[in-house]
Every structure is written in C-alpha cells, then in structure tokens.
Simulated assay, not measured.
Amino acid sequence: MKYAKALIRLALVGGIALSGAAMADHGNNITSTLHSVDVMHNGKTVTIERSSDKNATVPKAYNKVARHCPPFCIQPMPLGQGIETLGELEVLGYLKRVANGDRTVLVIDSRTPEWMARGTIPGSTNIPWNKINVDVEGSFAIDAEAETLQGILTDTFGARLVKGSWDFRNAKTLAFFCNGAWCPQSAVNVKTLVRLGYPAYKLKWYRGGMQSWVSLGLTTVNH
C-alpha cells in the first residue's frame, strides 16, 4: 500500500512539473490551450498575447478607482434584451474573424482621439462615440451630425436607407467597447443604434473595455 501511494505521489509531482514546463515554453498563455491570437491592425499583423513581464503594472490612465458619477457611473451587465455582453475571449474571437476576412463583423473602439493616443485593442476600428450619439429623432437631410451618422450606418456598418426607413438585414455585427465598466460611451452608442432599429442580436458590448484588457496584460497598440 505504501509503495502504491508513493507511485501515485510521484506521478502527481511529475505531472505538475511537466505542466509547469509546458507553460514555461509559452510564457503567459491566454487560456490553457491558447497562447496568442494574430489580428490585423492598420494593414499589419499584430499578435495579441499576455505580458510575461512579472514587473508590469496597469497603465496610469486606468489605475484610478475614484471616478465622478455622473458621467462615469458603473454600467449594468446587460444593456438590453438580445444584446450580448462580451468578455475578453469573445472579443478575441471577433477580432480573429475580422483578421480572417469576415466582413460581416466589426469591433469598435468608441473612445475619442485623446484616449486613443494611449493605446487601443489591436484589430479594432475607432469611431468616436459622439459620431454616433446624436439626436436620432432629427432630420437626416438637415442636421450635419445626423448626416455623419447616416454615412457611418451606410458606409461602415452596411445598413441601407430605403424611402426614409433603415434596412439592417445586411448590416454588420458590431462589438463596441470604451474605457471600462465605468465608461458610458459605448453603451450609449449601442442604445442609440437600438432606437434606430438596429437588430439587438447584431450588437455586442465589451463591458470591461480597456481597463479590463490592460489589467489582464493583453497587447495594445498605438492608434
């Protein structure tokens, strides 16, 4: 019996050592079976992986815990019926689809230029939140901001304006993010599109945003 227990103990120790060695070969994996994801950003391949620097810390822009509300109020987990809230692995999945040439999907950074200068998620497309968050009740023919939104809807999102009504049947699936669970910008954009009639199942929201992304040590790039 003692001999059998010793063999089991040896096997367990050996298994743990082997597992640790396998992980060491790949640094900090994203998951136990996923080391990295290659995406396209501004026409170049970028590899998203987790930092293996044991001294790395969260960038200063994201280490504040006190943020005035409003406007920086904590956002709910669900934005509305049919709208999926994403985690990092789901975002990586959409980024990989884009990199593989899937033109039906778009990952959107809703932040403004001064935040983009601090880095973004590779493979995402920047559309500042205030380009979408306009008075959707106004006339597209008169209001310049609404005309900008119309251009985004047709040229970027793939919607069609037919006799004054929006046709979203061939519109893209959109995954929005901004700075974090305290940032309302991407949430507002999603709600604006829902009011316009954009199908909820085609709208995704990465609630954690940049703060969660950098907290996990995932790769960022300068816009």
Score class of each variant (00 low, 15 high):
Thr220Ser: 13
Trp205Cys: 11
Thr219Phe: 07
Val194Trp: 00
Met210Leu: 09
Ser212Val: 11
Gly208Asp: 10
Leu193Lys: 02
Tyr198Thr: 02
Trp213Glu: 08
Ser215Lys: 12
Gly209Trp: 13
Tyr206Thr: 01
Arg207Cys: 01
Thr219Lys: 08
Gly208His: 11
Val221Asp: 07
Trp205Gln: 01
Val221Trp: 00
Val214Gly: 03
Lys202Phe: 09
Tyr201Val: 06
Val221Lys: 08
Thr219His: 05
Val214Asn: 04
Asn222Gly: 10
Pro199Ser: 11
Arg207Ala: 03
Val214His: 01
Thr219Trp: 10
Val214Lys: 08
Leu196Pro: 06
Pro199Phe: 05
Gly197Tyr: 13
Gln211Ser: 14
Val194Gln: 03
Val194Cys: 00
Tyr206Cys: 04
Tyr206Arg: 00
Leu218Pro: 05
Tyr206Val: 01
Tyr201Ser: 14
Leu193Glu: 02
Gln211Trp: 06
Arg195Thr: 12
Thr220Gln: 08
Val214Phe: 08
Leu216Val: 00
Tyr201Asp: 14
Ser215Thr: 05
Leu218Ala: 04
Ser215Gly: 10
Thr220Cys: 06
Asn222Arg: 14
Thr219Leu: 12
Pro199Trp: 06
Arg195Lys: 15
Val214Asp: 07
Val221Asn: 02
Leu218Ile: 12
Ser215Pro: 02
Asn222Trp: 04
Met210Asn: 07
Lys202Glu: 02
Tyr198Val: 05
Arg195Asp: 15
Tyr198Cys: 07
Met210Cys: 11
Gln211Arg: 14
Lys202Met: 09
Met210Ala: 09
Gly217Trp: 05
Trp205Lys: 10
Trp213Asn: 13
Tyr206Asp: 03
Met210Thr: 01
Tyr201Lys: 12
Ser212Pro: 01
Asn222Leu: 15
Leu193Gln: 00
His223Val: 13
Leu196Ser: 01
